[in-house]
Design a protein around this nucleic acid. Structure first.
Lengths: 101, 101
DNA sequence: TTTACATATTGACATATACAGATATTTATA
DNA sequence: TATAAATATCTGTATATGTCAATATGTAAA
């Protein structure tokens, strides 16, 4: 996913920040974040039903969100429960919205 | 750039928000935004020198930022001057950073 | 231990995006 | 008008990303 740029001087800072932003740059992932605003945690099946998407698609996006430190997860019996790592991500969304007004 | 998803119910809201976020999801574009924090406006050549990238690449990213309403531009003689449409975009960047801490 | 359930992973394919080179456009100046 | 400078656009190609289908893994229950 990392962007390759022919600009060695380009500060790592921006490359890393861009990677973080990319984690949020997908409607399904945004929707997941929004769902987790109301329910503290949800398992894959619950999310799948809410999103009406194939299990593999949901799982794929959850793994991206988890690997980018947006979500936490814990396993309970057969289920994997996902939750927001920080409520600050909700701020990001509203911050984005107001910036583009 | 728009994402096609097989989920008609998926609210437009998230698709549009994702598009906005994608506008920011590139290190070069972030760097441009950061540069424009300090200098109110810069022309393409100035940005090109600062970024040390090919003119076409810079121009390409500027056009994306402009089309997504992140930047304004005004033409003065031969030069096209770009500036931040809103200082709020700087908040977005810091907001992202603190969210991922 | 077999079966069903919940989730993750893999691989093929399609699409989106980025980049580089060439060319076009616009404007100023000789 | 011819030329140079500044910027934009186009085109081919490489890479990244998303989707889907199939399969694998892990866990619980019969």
């Amino acid at each position: 996913m990392a962007t390759k740029i022919k600009a060695p001087y380009l500060e790592k800072e921006w490359i890393e920040t861009a990677e973080k932003i990319k984690a949020l740059a997908h409607p399904i992932r945004l929707y997941v974040i929004a769902l987790l605003k109301h329910k503290k945690e949800m398992n894959v099946t619950e999310l799948q039903e809410e999103l009406q998407l194939e299990q593999a698609v949901v799982s794929h996006h959850l793994s991206i969100l988890k690997s980018r430190s947006v979500l936490n997860c814990r396993k309970e019996r057969k289920n994997m429960f996902y939750s927001l790592k920080s409520k600050k991500f909700l701020n990001v969304l509203s911050c984005i919205e107001t910036s583009f007004e």
